[in-house]
């Protein structure tokens, strides 16, 4: 019966209700986040301020309230959503392309490479633009090195890639340690330590543009490659026998994921766990098909990150570092997910 109807339902529209639900949840989370903060702004004022950008409404709020919502919360919520979406998408795509549900964006060396780049720029006190640029370049460089290490006679196996990624990560982490060792404890060291823990506190619309445009330029092709990633996840020989150029496709996935992760790290520091945990959530909800997992991971990653950041900035009057929260929240969730998955016999719905 279902198999008769199914052909009519194209991949992204299957179970349309779920997509509406995920989308509505993200919007709701963002609205709640925009209304939450240490500075009291009534919800109706928040809505009015947001609406007033497109629609003339009576101004019932103070200029300070408008500034809080438009200049502090809005870029911060947007950047949290974009970074969450980027990291979760990259995680889901890498898990598929490397056919290993236990890898995250940090595994191919990108995170550590980008962290090294950012720390280097902070160490040299080069300013925000340099931190972003340097994180991006070093992230890409780390991935290229891991990839060329894993590449033997024109082919790279997923396992050697993961191992090469671990090697490159360890090397980059050592250099980060060296830089923190050399950093001036009164000047650059506290900045480096804080940046490494990850934060959206310095969110600005410039940074929104950086992650936003990378998500568009790298994320869109990645989502479109969703069926290729399905085929790739069967294994190299099988994928090749099904007629797709395995090496080139995997290279494309890696490059696009690198762009997403490097952009995220460059604006918000290292935020672990999101790329690992969220795709599992998506699979629990929608099954293993990457045609659904990739877009669902984006939506769920965005919502998750916004929730975490809202907690980080409003739980106490002081900021809680993001990396600390994602790990504290992410690790138990991941443990629960693993149990859940193994109880069902495999990592699927």
């Amino acid at each position: 019966m279902t198999s008769q109807i199914a052909p009519a339902l194209m991949p992204l529209r299957v179970r349309g209700g779920v997509w509406w639900l995920l989308g509505a949840f993200l919007v709701a989370v963002m609205l709640v986040s925009l209304s939450t903060g240490n500075y009291q702004v009534p919800v109706n004022h928040v809505v009015g301020i947001l609406v007033s950008s497109w629609w003339p409404v009576e101004v019932t709020w103070t200029p300070v309230e408008a500034r809080v919502v438009e200049l502090i919360r809005l870029p911060r919520v947007l950047i949290a959503a974009l970074v969450g979406a980027s990291l979760a998408l990259a995680g889901a795509a890498l898990q598929g392309a490397l056919r290993n549900p236990l890898v995250g964006p940090q595994i191919v060396g990108v995170s550590s490479g980008a962290a090294l780049g950012g720390v280097l720029a902070l160490f040299l006190a080069l300013g925000t633009a340099a931190v972003i640029g340097s994180a991006f370049v070093f992230g890409a460089l780390a991935m290229l090195i891991a990839y060329s290490m894993a590449r033997v006679s024109g082919n790279s196996s997923p396992l050697t890639l993961v191992l090469a990624g671990i090697v490159v990560s360890a090397f980059c982490s050592a250099l980060v340690s060296l830089l923190t060792y050399l950093a001036n404890p009164e000047d650059s060291l506290p900045t480096i330590v804080y940046w490494l823990m990850g934060s959206f506190a310095t969110a600005s619309f410039d940074k929104v543009w950086v992650v936003g445009s990378v998500l568009l330029l790298a994320g869109l092709p990645l989502v479109l490659m969703r069926f290729r990633i399905n085929v790739l996840s069967l294994g190299d020989e099988e994928a090749q026998s099904l007629g797709i150029p395995v090496e080139r496709t995997r290279w494309a996935v890696l490059a696009l994921c690198t762009a997403l992760v490097a952009a995220s790290v460059s604006v918000s520091g290292v935020v672990d766990w999101v790329g690992l945990v969220i795709p599992h959530f998506a699979r629990l909800l929608l099954g293993p098909d990457h045609r659904k997992v990739l877009p669902a991971s984006m939506l769920m990653g965005a919502a998750y990150m916004v929730i975490i950041d809202t907690l980080a900035r409003s739980l106490t009057s002081a900021e809680i570092p993001l990396g600390v929260l994602t790990a504290i929240v992410g690790a138990p969730i991941f443990a629960w997910l693993l149990r859940q998955s193994s109880r069902r016999g495999a990592l699927h719905d």
């Binding site: 903060g37 240490n38 500075y39 300070v64 500034r67 809080v68 502090i72 919360r73 804080y194 506190a201 900035r313 009057s317 002081a318 900021e319 570092p321």
Partner: peptide, 8 residues
């Protein structure tokens, strides 16, 4: 460590 809102 605080956020901008707290300053306001």
């Amino acid at each position: 460590t605080i956020d901008a809102e707290q300053i306001l």
